[in-house]
């Protein structure tokens, strides 16, 4: 029940009095075994939802950190099928944490939307964020997802005005990803007061949990964003830690650093101000 696994995770966070921690890592960076261990470390240390990046040669919405992560993953030979196999392996021991595949349209399009939906459902993926499939273009994907109950997670941004938000909300499922800045991943630093009206509009119009992401790197920033949203997405900060393996750090050190950052971020999301 993929869509319901997503809502259950947000329900649980809400009932705990906190915003959900959504963590992003690039699958296969620098290898699939590291990714597997990182996924488990994320969950064990407080991540509520995982976004699993699928690498693409031309990631036009990503900043340098995630671009390079994708290049490392591709250099290691990671394919979309490998990403799905990683998800499946993760699902063998975890049936509760939602797993969202995030990537670009072309690899999915080439596999075929229906074949992909079936494979993703089988792998235990709960939904996808396909950055370059806006509402105008994702109907074939939605049709393919329906029998597998996969969520179509859409992006809303500071450029999304009220009329446009209705288009974005119509047909969206799982949650809405509110891109906190105009720009690429990991670049600008978001300001909570600037985006509060947009996030509230997204919540009101979609009726879905709204997660805020792009540029959130520290526990303090996460706390600020948690106060105004249902979930906080952190990506580039994890990717930057993992990138240190290329500088010679061991897998154990990387996994430990990921665990530490996850705890730091997670402790900031308690809306009651206490330590979760």
């Amino acid at each position: 029940m993929p869509v319901s696994r997503i809502s259950a995770a947000f329900d649980k966070a809400r009932s705990d009095g906190r915003s959900a921690l959504v963590s992003y890592v690039m699958a296969g960076d620098p290898d699939l075994e590291t990714s597997y261990q990182v996924l488990n470390a994320l969950v064990e240390n407080g991540a509520d939802v995982i976004e699993l990046g699928a690498p693409f040669t031309d990631p036009m919405a990503d900043g340098p950190s995630i671009q390079r992560a994708g290049q490392r993953s591709l250099a290691a030979g990671t394919t979309l099928k490998d990403v799905l196999a990683l998800a499946k392996r993760f699902r063998e021991t975890n049936q509760t944490t939602p797993l969202i595949l995030m990537g670009y349209a072309n690899p999915v399009h080439l596999m075929g939307y229906e074949a992909f939906a079936e494979a993703a459902g089988d792998a235990g993926i709960d939904g996808t964020i396909i950055v370059d499939l806006p509402p105008e273009e994702d109907m074939p994907l939605r049709e393919a997802y329906a029998p597998h109950e996969l969520a179509v997670i859409r992006l809303a941004t500071p450029t999304t005005h009220e009329g446009r938000m209705k288009t974005v909300a119509d047909g969206a499922s799982g949650f809405l990803y509110y891109v906190s800045v105009t720009g690429v991943t990991g670049a600008k630093k978001p300001v909570a007061s600037d985006i509060t009206p947009g996030v509230q509009m997204a919540q009101r119009i979609s009726g879905l949990p709204v997660c805020v992401g792009f540029g959130i790197k520290t526990g303090e920033q996460a706390r600020e964003m948690a106060a105004i949203s249902d979930g906080v997405v952190v990506g580039s900060a994890f990717v930057d830690i993992i990138s240190e393996m290329a500088q010679g750090k061991s897998r154990e050190e990387i996994v430990e650093s990921v665990a530490r950052l996850t705890r730091d971020l997670s402790s900031g999301l308690n809306r009651n101000g206490g330590v979760a």
Binding site: M60, A61, D132, L133, P134, E136, T157, P158, R164
Partner: peptide
């Protein structure tokens, strides 16, 4: 009206650019 030439074309961009 959807910017298609048969089955080609379209508007495959990130949401930030759609309003533009």
């Amino acid at each position: 009206a959807n910017g298609r030439f048969g089955e080609f074309g379209g508007r495959y961009v990130a949401e930030t650019l759609m309003p533009l």
